[in-house]
Design a protein around this nucleic acid. Sequence first.
DNA 1: CACGGTATAATTGTATACATAAATACGATT
DNA 2: AATCGTATTTATGTATACAATTATACCGTG
Lengths: 216, 216
Amino acid sequence: MFEHKTISLSDQVFERLEDEILWGNYQRGDTLTEMKLVTDLGVSRTPIRDALHRLEQERLIEITPRGILVLGVTGKDLADIYAIRIRIEGLAAREAAKYITDDQLAELKETLELQEFYVGKQNPDGIKIMDSQFHSLICQFSGSAILYDTIIPLHKKIQRYRRAAVSVNERAQESVQEHRAIYEALVKRDSDEAEHYMVEHVRKARDYTLQQEDWL
Amino acid sequence: MFEHKTISLSDQVFERLEDEILWGNYQRGDTLTEMKLVTDLGVSRTPIRDALHRLEQERLIEITPRGILVLGVTGKDLADIYAIRIRIEGLAAREAAKYITDDQLAELKETLELQEFYVGKQNPDGIKIMDSQFHSLICQFSGSAILYDTIIPLHKKIQRYRRAAVSVNERAQESVQEHRAIYEALVKRDSDEAEHYMVEHVRKARDYTLQQEDWL
DNA sequence: CACGGTATAATTGTATACATAAATACGATT
DNA sequence: AATCGTATTTATGTATACAATTATACCGTG
């Protein structure tokens, strides 16, 4: 069994529409129809319907007999997501510290150094990608598929605001330093310290993000 | 706009298959095909494919070019889910305590009393349903859609084990008492107490559940 | 008898035709 | 002029036909 999994049109449409919504190109209250997406995206209704039903399951849209309503992410969602992240993302760091391998540490180090590089270049897109990857890797290395599936969707939903945060050079520098502290704790395989620095990191990210009132 | 949302075949197939997997009728490693489901369920491929893609998104199955692999819930998942619940379900109780209305308290009370009734009757199915509803209501009353969407899928994945737990009369009685403590705290609108009792409740449920080794 | 290639079958992915339901627009009627 | 009923339009839900890929079985050949 070779089992090579190709990227289906459904998946492509799903990711594209998810992005459009999460980056605000489609806003809360906008309405869509399948036929409009057919002409816009150039694929048939089948993969589009697949994608839409998955987006509905993530509560990003609502499908009604008369059209598709964009829900997106609200300001309340943003606050709620940080409240949850503060409570569980430390767990991911804690578990990762227990089981992380040298190879995984090397991968994390490279991501961290790339992030530092982009901070130096003041490249928000680069920073944001490496920031996401850093957190994503730690979730992976936690060894818990459930934890990964719980945290990553939350990250994705607020990527727009995290992108905005690291556009401010001060915050970008703080953020990467906090990442380094987490990384160093992981090198020492110190669970308590890894958890502590992760929680503090998320807390600071929340404080910074929620105080920018004009983002919603 | 009447917007009456009928229950589509896709939804019915989704819930049915989700149930079959979560209750162990389809086990990890089992393989399915769309055509088998077509003949078994008596609907066309379209709603079945919709349902399968949503199940894949929940990581309950894996769809490959040669068939469908059932993943289900592992023992590791069970432990991971409790670790997460211990960290965030108290938050749901805390938030609910802030905003809960008298009507919502009445609804919660009725659920609680029904659960007590079923415990008296030693009716595990009844207990399990009311137990689930109690937790679900508190998530609703927290006012956070994100929190609801984060916790409820975790509940669903371990419903089989929670059902088993409340089949033991001792645990069923403890459990309903713990629920009552949470309810009383909510009546007082005491956030700290509500959170405390919820965390303790989940912790005890975990201890009881994970010690039954023969469940996986 | 072993091995390789080709044909076949079985599977999911995709497109499209048809069914169904509801909102809207239009016309007739009072 | 207002209102009720009906026809039409528009939307998603469903079924089915077709495409593409790949594992498998079979047959021929060395």
